[in-house]
Amino acid sequence: MTVQNDNTKVSNRRNIGVATACVVFVGGMVGMAYAAVPLYQLFCQVTGYGGTTQRVEQMSEVVLDRTINVTFDANASSGLNWDFKAVDKKVTPRIGETVQIMYTATNNSSHPVTGEAIFNVTPGEAGAYFNKVQCFCFTETTLQPGETLEMPVVFFVDPAIVEAEETKGIGTITLSYTFYPRDDQEPVAALSVGEDKEQPKL
Rank of each mutant, 00 (worst) to 15 (best):
93 P>S: 00
49 Y>Q: 02
99 V>T: 15
44 C>D: 14
63 V>D: 01
95 I>H: 11
88 D>H: 14
76 A>K: 02
71 T>I: 01
38 P>S: 13
62 V>H: 14
78 S>Y: 06
54 Q>I: 12
63 V>R: 09
79 G>N: 13
43 F>V: 11
89 K>I: 02
43 F>D: 07
50 G>K: 02
51 G>W: 03
42 L>S: 11
69 N>Q: 07
54 Q>E: 13
71 T>R: 12
40 Y>Q: 14
81 N>R: 09
80 L>T: 02
63 V>G: 03
56 V>W: 04
52 T>A: 13
95 I>W: 14
62 V>M: 06
101 I>S: 01
89 K>D: 12
43 F>I: 14
83 D>E: 12
65 D>P: 08
73 D>T: 00
38 P>C: 14
61 E>Q: 11
59 M>Q: 10
72 F>E: 07
88 D>L: 14
90 K>G: 07
47 T>S: 04
90 K>S: 13
100 Q>D: 10
70 V>F: 07
89 K>V: 04
100 Q>E: 10
60 S>E: 00
87 V>S: 03
81 N>P: 12
94 R>H: 15
88 D>G: 01
53 T>N: 15
100 Q>L: 00
41 Q>A: 11
90 K>A: 10
91 V>A: 03
67 T>C: 10
38 P>V: 03
46 V>M: 13
80 L>H: 02
96 G>Q: 05
46 V>Y: 06
47 T>Q: 01
42 L>Q: 12
57 E>D: 03
81 N>F: 00
38 P>A: 14
44 C>M: 12
68 I>P: 09
98 T>K: 07
69 N>Y: 09
63 V>T: 08
49 Y>A: 15
40 Y>H: 13
73 D>S: 14
75 N>Q: 15
84 F>E: 10
68 I>R: 09
70 V>H: 07
69 N>S: 08
68 I>V: 01
44 C>N: 12
69 N>K: 15
40 Y>L: 15
87 V>R: 04
87 V>A: 04
56 V>H: 02
38 P>H: 14
75 N>K: 11
70 V>S: 05
55 R>Y: 05
